[in-house]
Design a protein around this nucleic acid. Structure first.
Lengths: 340, 340
DNA sequence: TGCCCCTGTGTAAACCTTTACATCATTCAT
DNA sequence: ATGAATGATGTAAAGGTTTACACAGGGGCA
């Protein structure tokens, strides 16, 4: 039922009239074998259509050249674009990618750990923001595998991190609003439990303080980063009647919610209110008004993360265990100078 | 440098005072071992923290319980949502997912084949619409591995297929426009080389013919499915001055291009022109006007594809080698009755 | 010539399972 | 009481590599 019967290294050795050790060397350390022999081996390989059995190889070498990627939601567009970068770098270096969708379900996280503990994957890329359930907690230090956190840092656990500089990015965003003349700037999406939200809020505060603007706590609203949370927060502002001239949103999804709320109330955007997002997800250029936002260099984040992981895997000690890439300001049509 | 020293089946056997064969059986065929023994083994497993080495297992059993997924662009949101479905079903059945981004690059396709030919993956899910370069063509029938095409059928190669019923879906879409009173309906996105485009065009024709509408060939325009192609096609219509009252677009991206073109020309939508898309990608609900479209059941497509593949892998002969799921009409705000 | 070193190759162990087959003790039917 | 059948376990082979070590031959040098 399966493929006929694959050629093994023995078949090649027999055809080339050498030992299997020589075949192995001809493949892996070509310089260590005589030219004539090497030619015979290569030809035999071509004739037999031999490919080395990865399982046997991994078993013997105790590594699989596979990287496990753990993400709460592989359908998230933000994830999938980083994935492209991860894949680019990995395949360039001969590594394969194994993906696990955890849906934030602890049992699924534990489940995927078997790939690590059974040597099916050499390293781990974490999008989850926490160690997979079953690690760290169970018996003190269970010897963590080489891993890199992406997007969301892992709190309190010295895990190397690659991502965008959220604080700096949010600062740039807020400064952009300030440079347009805004002084009453709301921050939508405060959340004490999410590191990303905290950092972006910190960037917002830094910019305002830097410009000598006193922060009005009524302009800082909670939100979990969903579109609905953005809509709700904007509504709340109208109820409370403490209005800003500009909304700095923790991410584009939230900004979209704000836009929906304002459109529903028939405000003219961006004349009456300015809105900024963060991330630059695909629809941001299609909303009306199209969204001014901070673009994450997703492809580069993926590449950098994989690069760092492979360095760790190779036993190197990278200069820095944290790589922060700059978000880029994308100016579109959702920001204008304040009305008066 | 790697994890300390994993417990092997021998360690477990020693601790439980049995042979390794018994341990293996206790794990894989629990009924075949005496209760008392089984308990001792399970306890030893717990104490040692043993996990069976997947490499050794795969080597011996000649299968890896891995599925290779080949896609031209893993960043494509349409892909990533199907991926969630694939993963759900696969992990439920104990399979892992290995992903390969080919970027339609033949050399990358060939590259990923090593996973199949080296037993690192048991089966293949194809999003590419063609066999990986290096298969089929090189030496007649090289014994194809079990595989399933998703999204885009593989032409002329009897590869099992799972996807949306494009013809039927496009017919439903066109009929929706007809039911609103449209008779001059354009089809944007003809492409003789793309099976999906051909099928959707066929559905469009079927609906019009079914309603007794004579098809005006000037209303059928080429397009490759990109936003830009949609924009260009709409422009071309104005140049040629053969205008429809409604645009049926081969997909949402194309529809977006059409909307952009019409917005740019300051038409009022949907009063002056109706637009329909196909796919229901994430931004479709955020464009203005929000897009009436046909929604692909992406999660179910993924599940069904994996189910089919695993059935093939298990040696079953599924009743049908083609699974067509229905697209669902999503009514939003881009369609209205024609002006006059 | 004798010794050492180097280069190229082979032998065999190790990596960790699964499983066919053998063994042994029991039970059951005759 | 004997033989067969059953059930539980052990032995050892096989799966396909990589690589430490051994070995042979030849060249360079004293």
């Amino acid at each position: 039922m399966q493929q006929h019967k694959l050629a093994t290294i023995e078949d090649v050795a027999a055809m080339a009239g050498v030992s299997i050790a020589t075949v192995s060397r001809a493949i892996n350390e070509p310089t260590k074998v005589a030219d004539a022999t090497r030619r015979r081996v290569t030809e035999a390989i071509a004739r037999t259509g031999y490919t080395t059995n990865a399982m046997a190889r991994s078993l013997r070498m105790r590594r699989s050249n596979m990287i496990l990627i753990l993400a709460p939601d592989v359908g998230d567009p933000n994830f999938s674009n980083i994935l492209v970068g991860l894949e680019t770098e990995a395949s360039k270096r001969g590594y394969g990618l194994l993906i696990g969708n955890t849906q934030n379900d602890p049992s699924r996280e534990t489940d995927y750990l078997r790939f690590i503990s059974s040597n099916q994957a050499d390293g781990l890329i974490l999008f989850t923001g926490h160690l997979p359930f079953g690690f760290g907690q169970d018996r003190g230090e269970t010897r963590l595998p080489p891993m890199v956190a992406v997007n969301e840092p892992v709190m309190g656990q010295d895990v190397p991190f690659v991502g965008v500089d959220n604080l700096e990015g949010a600062r740039v965003a807020a400064e952009h609003l300030i440079s347009q003349g805004h002084r009453r700037i709301a921050f939508i999406g405060r959340s004490s439990s999410r590191e990303i939200n905290r950092l972006r809020e910190a960037g917002y505060r830094a910019a305002l303080e830097g410009a000598g603007i006193v922060i009005d706590p009524r302009l800082i609203l909670d939100g979990d980063g969903t579109t609905e949370s953005g809509r709700a927060a904007a509504e709340l502002m109208f109820v409370r009647d403490a209005l800003p001239t500009a909304f700095l949103c923790v991410n584009d999804a939230t900004a979209l919610g704000v836009i929906i709320a304002l459109n529903t109330r028939h405000y003219e955007l961006p004349r009456q209110f300015s809105i900024m997002g963060f991330d630059d997800i695909s629809f941001s250029s299609f909303v009306s008004p199209s969204l001014t936002t901070m673009k994450q260099p997703r492809h580069r984040i993926g590449e950098a993360a994989m690069e760092l992981l492979l360095a760790l895997l190779a036993g190197e000690t990278p200069k820095s265990r944290e790589v922060l890439l700059r978000a880029e300001l994308i100016v579109r049509n959702s920001v204008a100078r304040p009305a008066r």
